[in-house]
């Protein structure tokens, strides 16, 4: 009997603790919620932290769901700002959405460090990834069969790369991996492989390829000389005003501090491009 009394007492205590903890987490905070592209995670992390430091009474959330999910999230009112790592499509515009480019992400073609190739033209890249060029010697490399490493269907990086280079749906991959890290590991382990990752995830274990003679770097992406780049877009609704908290966040993104944070996260902010003109 004693045990039962103790049990009941313990459960009451638990419930009370639970209730008080609920009350504690209830302070009147306004919220800005973002939802979308997983490729933007690093940038949103930097921006969110900087934003919360400057606006301690607004809490910032980011949900990594993917570009398409983020866009439908705005439409369905699940978040304040949708995040897309591609330009919004005409049919999405028709639904009353507007896109606001905040930064550029650059996709880099990477090869193994033992591969002597340094430069490829856009056409060569297209031919390689569609399977027209099958051997590295056709582009001046060793006599090795080219192994194409790509990302899974639905990945923002794959979509970005295939649309920017004009490969479309004709890619013929040997492997489809699910993260930039996997692509890097695989490419660094196979001399005849070629893959693509975003500029911010490039590591020393692999080699970046110049496109049409332009080396990928923040500088060349910013100026637009390096052509394989895609926009990072904030998606908003045209017909609906954003909440005050979201407005504060959108203003923050245009400040110099935020531009700094964007470049620190490995992306290329839009604002600086204008300054250089």
């Amino acid at each position: 009997m004693k045990k039962i009394i103790i049990l009941i007492a313990a459960s009451i205590a638990c419930v009370m603790i639970f209730m008080t903890s609920c009350e504690n987490s209830k302070p009147a905070l306004s919220k800005v919620s973002t939802d979308g592209s997983t490729s933007m995670e690093k940038m949103m992390g930097f921006l969110g932290e900087g934003f919360e430091n400057e606006n301690p009474n607004i809490s910032f959330t980011y949900n990594a769901t993917g570009s398409s999910a983020g866009i439908s999230g705005v439409l369905e009112d699940r978040c304040d700002i949708g995040l897309a790592s591609r330009a919004i499509k005409p049919e999405e515009k028709k639904k009353g959405l507007i896109g606001k480019t905040v930064a550029y992400d650059s996709i880099v073609v990477v090869v193994n460090r033992d591969n002597p190739i340094k430069n490829l033209s856009m056409k060569e890249i297209r031919d390689i990834f569609t399977g027209k060029i099958k051997n590295w010697k056709e582009v001046g490399g060793k006599n090795l069969e080219i192994v194409l490493i790509g990302r899974e269907a639905g990945s923002g990086t794959r979509d970005g790369f295939e649309s920017v280079t004009g490969i479309g749906e004709k890619s013929k991959y040997r492997q489809e991996l699910t993260s930039a890290g996997d692509v890097i590991t695989t490419v660094s382990g196979n001399e005849s492989s070629v893959g693509y990752v975003s500029l911010s995830s490039v590591k020393d274990s692999i080699k970046m390829i110049s496109v049409d003679g332009v080396k990928p770097s923040e500088e060349s992406v910013r100026t637009g000389k390096y052509a394989v780049r895609r926009p990072f877009v904030f998606v908003l609704r045209k017909d609906k005003k954003v909440s005050d908290a979201a407005k504060t966040f959108l203003d923050f993104v245009e400040t110099k501090r935020a531009q700094e944070l964007i470049s620190r996260s490995g992306q290329v902010p839009l604002g600086e491009k204008d300054e250089q003109k």
Binding site: A69, E152, A153, G154, E176
Partner: peptide, 21 residues
């Protein structure tokens, strides 16, 4: 050949999928 299993078909595409996919 490079192949895809039933399990990996679900796991590899689920995170970015939407709609009919």
């Amino acid at each position: 050949q490079s192949v895809r299993f039933l399990t990996t078909a679900v796991a590899s595409e689920m995170s970015y999928s939407s709609g009919m996919q």
